[in-house]
Structure formats: C-alpha cells, structure tokens
Amino acid sequence: MTQTPKKNSYDVVIVGGAMLGSSCAWFLTDNPGFDGSILVVERDPTYEFTSTSHTNSCMRQQFSREINVRISQFAADFVKNFRAYMGDDPRVPNIPIQSYGYMYLADNAEFAATLRESQKLQAACGAGTKHMTREEIAAAYPFYNLDDIIAGNHNLIDEGYFDGNTLFDWWKRSARERGVEYVTNEVVAMTKDAGGRIASVTLKSGDEIACGTVVNASGPRAARTAKMAGIDIPVEPRKRYTFIFEAEKPLDRDLPLTIDPSGVHMRSDGTYYLAGCPPDDDPAVDYDDFVQDHSLWEDKVWPILATRIPQFEAIKLRNSWAGHYAYNTFDQNAIVGPHPEIANFIFVNGFSGHGFQQSPAMGRGVAEWITAGAYSSLDLTPFHFDRIARGARFEEKAVI
C-alpha cells in the first residue's frame, strides 16, 4: 500500500531506502551544514529482496586502489565505534568485527605478484595485510590443501565480517527520529526545469514532489531510476549465491574468508560455515528473479570446498539463497557523486558487491557533496560519473 508524503516539496529526495539510501539520509542529518528536509522513497518496506537483505556483511581492506582501502578503513572505525558515531546513544549496541580476515590464494605467479604489489599498497595505508608463502599459510591453517597454491595474502586486523543489518536498522531509526520522512512508494518519473535540473519526481501514487536534489540509491534498479532523468548507467542486477553448511568434523580454528582461485569463497559463520560464488554463466537477470540454481552447490561449490579443505568432504547444506549485486559492467567500482550536466542528480550506485563495507564512507561523502559541493573527508571524485563518459575505467584488481 503506497503512502503519500506529508509535503509536496523536499530539499533532498532519496530514491531507495536500503543500506546506502539510509546511510545518505543519516549522514545528511549528522552534517552540521545541512538543515534541509529529506524524503526517502522505498518501494518495499520489508526490504525482503534488496541487496541489503541478502548481504554477507563482509569487510576487507585488501583492495588494489588506495581510495578503496581508505574507504574500508573508515568503515572499520565506524563499526568499532558505532555508538560514539551515533551520538553515544545508550540504546545503540556495540558491533564487533569478526576479524577472521580474507585469505586470497594464488595458484600462479602472475596473481601472486599482484597480491604482493597490493600488500605493499595496503601496508603503506596502515593495513595489517601479510604476504604469505605456501609454507606460512600451511603453518597457520593446516586444514588447507595447498598443492596448487604458491602464495597468499591475509589480514587479521579489522577485516572479516560484521552485523551490517544492525547498522542499517539504526541509521534508518535515527534518521527518522531526526526528521527524515520514509514513505512506501515508488518513483516512476522525473521532470526537469528549463535549466535541465531535476525539478520534481512523480510517485506511483500519482503525487508530484518538488525537490532540490535527487539521490539515486536504488541498488540493482539504479539504471531504471537514472533513465527517468535521461541518463544511461552501466549497472545491472547479477545473481550471487550464498550457502550455509555444517561440517561433520568442524575445523579446529576459525576459517578466514578464503577466496579460492576458482572464484568460490568460504568462511566461518558462527557454528556453521558460509560459501558463495557467482554462476559460471553470469548474465544480467530480471529485477525480480531470485530463483536459485541448485545444481551450483552439487556440481561446483561442494567439490571445490572438499578439494580445498578435505575436512569439508562430509558437510550438510543448511540454507541457501540468491541475491543481486548492483553490478557495474564498466569497471566494477561504485558510481558516486553528481552527474556532470544534471548537477542535482546524485549517484550512489554500482557497488558490485562492496556496498555494505563502503556505505559509511559513501553516505558521508554524498552528504558532504550535497551540503557543500565538495568532499571534506575522503576525496571520492575517482568514482564520479564523468569517468564513464570519458571511457576511463577506474581499475580495481581485487573484485570478488
């Protein structure tokens, strides 16, 4: 059932109220330079089919570009000091980071060299990543079969996974308490003024809402939202699969989030284990297509788990689901900031699986840009839309 906004004009209209939309809304309320009105339009108040609901809530500093490392370092600080960032509200829980780390495994010299180069960059940023030989990996984690592995990278500091949905819930709750209005509705059209700026949005309910700024935070549906403004962006929904399983003989220590050369990843998940992967054939899918490919577990994931960790030959699948990446086909990095011509249309799109861990820095940056027309913390201009218009890819080698 759609809801009509309380007013017919807002300073900022955010299209999409999941993790990134709520991050932008909350950081706007937390920015001392912003005192405007905010409307968040969310088509599904249950968030059942959002990327937010299907996330694995992972966090890593193991990227090949400095800005991506810095973004994750802010996320780690934000999570570890969440209550303080939320104004020392005693209702806000402490959120630990399960710092099992990411373990990238290299089975060829070229990827091993890439890992070594990335480790140097990460170390220069203050990250705790270590480049490890096969023998060092075996000593730390003797359960791996490393016959084909020559090296790896691992970081046990502020890297692993966290309870991202608690972050999301409190951003949404706090934003509402600070005056942000959330409505169950859907933006179906946009109108421009004589200068080419977005003047208003039309909702599914028929309401026309004037706006000063529009933020596209609509996840895998980002291209549809951008199209309403006459903009094409290379973002599409891609399926990603998650499997929760139990081992007959559990490992004697935590399993890092291990990125196997096959593309399958696995980690500890409480008393269970989690694995995931893209399909071998990875096309764009329909926005509402969450049908699982059950053969993927039997034919690909389980055999790879059992090969990499022989103790996982005897495991039982407990749960599984398919979710969507908001996949940027151009360079798998986020599209953030203003459109170069429609300056009041702001992107926060195309995270390609990095959205949860990047949401604190991106919400803060979008709030800074809307408030002052510039970034005062991390410089997010490498993620601006104009790189796409120029055909200048922002390459990130560590994409999962």
Rank of each mutant, 00 (worst) to 15 (best):
P278W: 13
G17L: 06
A76P: 03
S72C: 13
I95S: 07
Y161N: 10
R83L: 08
A326T: 01
M59E: 11
S295Q: 09
A223R: 03
H131Q: 09
L317H: 08
M103E: 02
T258A: 06
P278M: 13
S9H: 14
N344M: 13
D89I: 03
H324P: 04
V13K: 14
S37C: 00
G128K: 08
T202S: 12
L121T: 10
F347R: 05
V188E: 01
D299R: 12
R240H: 14
T166A: 02
Q332S: 11
V40W: 07
I304M: 08
T133A: 09
H131R: 05
V13D: 14
G337A: 11
D331G: 12
H324F: 00
H294D: 11
A322F: 09
A25F: 03
N145F: 15
M1Y: 14
D11G: 08
S72D: 07
N319I: 03
G17F: 11
T29D: 00
R65E: 15
P96H: 05
F245T: 07
N165Q: 07
G21W: 14
Q73D: 03
R176Y: 12
M103W: 02
G373A: 12
A247Q: 03
A398P: 05
M132F: 13
W297N: 02
C211D: 06
G164D: 00
N319M: 08
S205N: 10
M362R: 02
V285L: 06
V366H: 08
R318C: 15
N153Y: 05
N216L: 06
R65I: 15
G230T: 11
A76H: 00
E208N: 09
I309D: 06
R390L: 13
P32W: 05
R65L: 15
D254L: 10
R387V: 15
E177W: 08
A109T: 09
G152M: 01
Y325C: 08
V348L: 13
V79W: 09
Y182P: 04
K316W: 11
V235K: 03
Q73Y: 04
C58E: 07
Y375T: 07
K80W: 10
A314G: 08
R83Y: 13
C125Y: 10
Y375V: 05
I259L: 14
G270K: 03
K7I: 12
